[in-house]
Computed example of a mutant assay.
Amino acid sequence: MNINALTLKQLRAFTSVARLGTLTAAAEELSLTKGALSVALHELEKQLGHPLFDRVKNRLVMNSYGQQLRPLADELLQRTMTIESLFGQGNLAGTLNIGASYTVGEHLLPMLVGNFMQRHGCQRPHLIVENTSHLCQLLESYELDLALVEGQINSQRLMARPWLQDHMLVVAAPGHPLAQQTDLPINALEGENWVVREAFSGTREQFDRRLAPLLDNWQLGLEFNTNTAVISAVASGIGLGFISDLAAADALCCGRIVRLDLQQSWTRQLNLVCAADKYQTPLMSTFMEYALQWQGLQNVTEERIS
């Protein structure tokens, strides 16, 4: 094995194919011909003495050797950006790949990223909004640098740091029989239809783990993969909803839905998550520390009150 012959071009070829799954897509991303990319990948496998991918129809699927190389290659490439940053007159080099679960992505991420870019003048990050389960998969495969999520993190391969706290509300259409009542006990919700988020979302996890076990009898009305659809269905009288205060704020303000006055309340933890073994570039580290100190949720609340 000639480890000294490894090149950054080869590692970039490997990580791009690992992420995208095909030579065609990777070649387009790296602005290379498909032939040049194939040669770089072949040379890397030859120098390491092992194939890194299994050829499955038209896709390349990482095998166990590729999975071992992936975090090491990612770190080496990230460290090259550290060198660029070190000699780049203080600029934070590179581009972050940031994920957010739906509630965070729709209501907090735009302000957070906008504030960060104004302060640090970095490149525009790549953003993706998905449910928590999918974001965890992307983090584990190194397709994301970090994610801001509302769901539980159960993978030992991921590191979660507490970020902000959010409140969960039970909401109803203004004409619902419970809408005008106060100090409601939990059993007042028995027998109701519910409009919920899809399985594996952070909001659905909260419903399944914290509210549903308190009810002996509840019916599924409808299930959606966006908060907006849930709110619209609740407003039309299809059923009650269990949703974030952030997501419900505008609809509550204009009277489309109302918050039920319950004796019990729920607070959930939002987390900042990354792969436990991922190398943190200066840009990534700076963004994470900025996010952990960010007071944007308070700003959102103040804007809502005013």
Rank of each mutant, 00 (worst) to 15 (best):
L211V: 05
Q181G: 05
E303Q: 11
C253L: 14
L240K: 03
Q263W: 04
W294S: 13
F287Y: 01
L272P: 00
L211C: 04
Q298G: 14
N227G: 10
W266Q: 04
E190H: 00
Q295E: 12
Q293G: 13
E192Y: 12
A251W: 02
T226G: 05
L189M: 14
Q269E: 00
A235D: 00
D250K: 09
F200T: 04
D277A: 14
K278N: 06
D250A: 14
A233P: 04
S236C: 08
D216H: 07
E192L: 12
A291F: 02
G296N: 08
E303I: 06
Y290P: 06
N227I: 02
L189A: 09
E289K: 13
A229D: 09
L214M: 12
S201L: 11
A291R: 03
N299K: 15
I257Y: 07
V273T: 01
F287W: 03
Y279I: 06
L262K: 06
A233Q: 12
A291T: 02
T226H: 08
D245W: 11
N217Y: 00
A275R: 01
L262N: 06
G239Y: 02
L283K: 00
E289F: 08
D250Q: 15
A248F: 03
D183Q: 11
D208V: 01
V300D: 00
V258T: 08
Q280M: 11
L184N: 01
G255C: 03
E198Y: 07
E303T: 04
N227K: 07
L260W: 00
Q269M: 05
E192V: 05
L178R: 07
R204A: 08
C254K: 08
L252D: 05
A248W: 04
T286R: 14
A199F: 13
G241Q: 07
L178I: 08
K278M: 13
Q181L: 13
R204W: 12
E198G: 07
D216V: 08
W218Y: 12
A247C: 12
E205D: 10
N227V: 02
Q293D: 15
I243N: 03
W218P: 05
R268K: 14
P282Q: 10
H176I: 13
Q180N: 06
E223R: 11
N193Y: 10
A179K: 01
P185I: 02
Q295H: 11
A291K: 03
K278L: 13
G191M: 09
L270T: 00
L292N: 02
E303V: 09
R210Y: 02
A248D: 00
G175L: 14
Q219T: 11
D208L: 08
S285D: 15
V195G: 05
P185T: 11
V300Q: 05
T286G: 10
G175D: 08
L270F: 04
A235K: 08
C254E: 04
N225C: 11
A247T: 09
V300W: 04
R259D: 09
Q293Y: 06
N225A: 10
L260H: 03
Q181H: 09
S236I: 06
L178E: 02
A173H: 10
W194H: 06
W194D: 01
T228Y: 15
